[in-house]
Nucleic acid binder design. Structure first.
Length: 128
DNA sequence: ATTCTGACGATGT
DNA sequence: AACATCGCCAGAA
């Protein structure tokens, strides 16, 4: 699912966002910016968020938060508290709409998926 | 076509 | 640390 040089801003981009979001392991979270960066739209985190606006149900949108670990998207869930509830159910502590130990549960697609699209890394940062 | 908004992020003050 | 500004780019009005 490498971003093509051409017109990545098609529906293609959205579907890719969904695809990556689906890869987020339970009990982990990532940020809009991280997904955007993984897809090559590093500075277009808003697009990722916008993409989630119309994401399928099989996409764990509740595992996607902003870079500060805030549940900025909770307001868009049917019951806004569902996002927080789902996270807690997966073992993620949430206090004041913020993920506790955000760095510990953060899942970076660029590192975990390690595409090595262009530059193979000798060792990838282990988040375990 | 133009303007405004947005589930964001980095930077400046 | 809290707040303000800019950049980002796709949709909606």
């Amino acid at each position: 699912m490498v971003r093509t040089k051409k017109k990545q801003t098609d529906k293609n981009f959205f579907t890719d966002v969904f695809e990556v979001a689906r890869l987020i392991p339970p009990g982990r979270v990532t940020s809009y910016g991280a997904i955007g960066q993984y897809l090559g739209l590093k500075s277009s985190a808003r697009m990722v968020g916008w993409a989630m606006h119309g994401c399928p149900k099989d996409v764990p949108a509740h595992r996607v938060v902003n870079s500060k670990g805030l549940l900025s998207g909770k307001h868009h869930f049917k019951p806004p508290e569902k996002m927080e509830r789902l996270l807690k159910k997966e073992g993620i502590a949430v206090v004041n709409d913020k993920i506790v130990h955000f760095a510990d549960v953060f899942w970076n697609p660029s590192a975990e998926l390690a595409l090595d699209v262009a530059k193979p890394r000798k060792k990838r940062p282990k988040l375990g």
